[in-house]
């Protein structure tokens, strides 16, 4: 179970003079069960990249392999790929169209040609796993709040039973409470449903808490690819391309420079607290000796 991207290039408006290269020579391997964050500012190519993963956009050159199969092969089943690699777009609530929430979630599985019973079962399961209150299943999706609509939209993709779930800035436009809810939900789905999750975001702080691996995109290329700690060590370079490491990273470096030996890899408040207390204690102990 893996997705491999081999020297993928993509440019808009191939023939005309306005050629824009959106992706440059991307090589990536995404393993089963990973929780990945793709970070980059607007126009870095991150949205274009994820649309390649389920075949919505076709690479200008290079190959993409899903479980060892070339997705650009003529007899490759694109529809199956789209059900296996679920893609939740930015502001996914804008795609809702049915008269009831339940019907809307049924749309995906119905397109897969499943029988009515299976479709409904899947919709039910999907709505449950996003924690949507059962009492509202048959209401109009247009009356819901922003955060709730988004849950329904995510359930709509989840009902396809994807093996890989990609979310393009799932927290855009939500308030902090809504943001935390959605991120917690995604993290829970990753654990409970045992699916690969790829989270696209422009916020380092949001992502640092959840993911195991960060891919930083800049101007169409992969700039860094590693664990959050490895990536945040490059905070000075991240800053140059308009991305910021978590505030804590800066603080730890500042303390370190001023002579307090704290752990530079701390990225969350918890880690930072432990490290600072520990460093102060050592400091104290040294003084007493």
């Amino acid at each position: 179970m893996s997705i491999i991207l081999d020297k993928v290039n993509f440019s808009y408006s191939q023939e005309t003079a306005y050629k824009i290269q959106a992706l440059k020579d991307i090589n990536l391997k995404i393993e089963d069960g990973e929780f990945i964050g793709i970070i980059g500012h607007t126009g870095s190519g991150k949205s274009t990249l994820i649309q390649h993963l389920n075949g919505l956009v076709k690479a200008t050159s290079g190959g993409i392999y899903f479980n060892g199969q070339d997705i650009y092969d003529e007899d490759f089943n694109m529809k199956e790929l789209r059900s296996k690699v679920g893609l939740v777009f930015q502001y996914p609530e804008h795609q809702l169209f049915e008269t009831t929430i339940f019907d809307d979630v049924c749309f995906g599985p119905k397109n897969l040609g499943l029988d009515k019973k299976t479709v409904e079962l899947r919709a039910y399961e999907a709505l449950r796993s996003v924690g949507f209150p059962e009492a509202l299943y048959f209401q109009s999706p247009f009356d819901l709040s922003g955060g709730q609509k988004r849950r329904v939209a995510i359930a709509g993709v989840l009902a396809m039973k994807p093996e890989v779930l990609i979310l393009d800035e799932p927290t855009a436009g939500l308030d902090p409470a809504g943001r935390d809810e959605i991120l917690d939900l995604i993290s829970k789905m990753h654990k409970e449903l045992a699916i690969t999750v790829i989270l696209v975001s422009h916020s380092m702080e949001d992502v640092a808490k959840y993911v195991d691996r960060i891919i930083v995109m800049n101007q169409g290329s992969v700039m860094y690819d590693g664990t959050p700690k490895e990536v945040f060590r490059q905070y000075k370079y991240l800053e140059e391309v308009g991305l910021a490491a978590p505030q804590v990273t800066y603080l730890m470096h500042e303390l370190h420079e001023k002579g307090l030996p704290v752990n530079l890899d701390a990225t969350t408040v918890e880690e930072a607290k432990e490290s600072i207390l520990c460093a102060l204690r050592n400091n104290e102990a040294k003084r007493l000796q």
């Binding site: 919505l56 529809k79 804008h94 795609q95 749309f107």
Partner: peptide
């Protein structure tokens, strides 16, 4: 642009 986006979003849900 929006049409393009919604179309892609529905295609990701298996629409044809």
């Amino acid at each position: 642009e929006e049409t393009d986006k919604i179309m892609k979003a529905q295609m990701a849900r298996g629409a044809d």
